[in-house]
Design a protein around this nucleic acid. Structure first.
Lengths: 109, 109
DNA sequence: TAATTATATTAGCAACATGTAATATTATAT
DNA sequence: ATATAATATTACATGTTGCTAATATAATTA
């Protein structure tokens, strides 16, 4: 009678895994920062105030999940968002949780 | 020099909490179902195949977080999405993880 | 080569999340 | 009142996650 749209299990699994990957204060902060531009680890440390080892582990986790990618530049390692889907998601989140930061990006009237 | 847009800590906290709330296969499935229409618990049980107690706990969690709301109707309890932000989020997810389910909602040509 | 800087890895513990089983509650019907 | 159906709650065992501290690696400089 009512045809509910069954979402395939593997999609649900992938989506919830993706969500879990960003559902963490520090990881989300990092993603918001990287939304602006790629950054090296110590910039991220400074901006977030996280402990080096801790941040490194979170970066590593996100890299393994394909969310971030990195590039070595001298002794620095520069991280950026690898998967545009996650950039979209984080943008959507900013719209929801920080609407005032999403209007009128620069200049005014 | 570079003015990074600092996102307030409480927003990050709220957003990551919201994400955690839906970053679970069963909870996400439920949200996708409720995106279509409100449903009572045994419909959700049937549609998801979850154990009654288990589902009930997840519903309760989402209700306490303000994601869902419910209404008693006889001995049934009908759940619906209470917070439109979460409907938006789940929609965004569907676009990312199930694009083919998001085009041409009904009819064609 | 030794010291320094930048980053990664490992180990271990504490906190939290999840599922199941059992039980409780509430409404309806007999 | 009893039985049944629908849902909620509790307790507990297990698994997962996250943090810190310590250590390792790699590049740079002296």
């Amino acid at each position: 009678m009512n045809e509910l749209p069954q979402i395939p299990e593997d999609r649900i699994k992938a989506a919830s895994q993706g969500l879990r990957a960003i559902a963490h204060e520090l990881r989300l902060s990092v993603l918001c920062l990287l939304l602006e531009r790629p950054m090296c680890v110590h910039e991220l440390i400074e901006a977030t105030g996280a402990a080096q080892s801790n941040l490194s582990q979170h970066l590593s986790k996100m890299r393994m999940l394909g969310i971030l990618e990195n590039e070595k530049r001298g002794q620095e390692v520069i991280y950026r968002i690898a998967n545009p889907a996650f950039a979209d998601l984080v943008h959507a989140l900013k719209f929801i949780y920080c609407p005032e930061m999403c209007v009128a990006p620069k200049g005014e009237g």
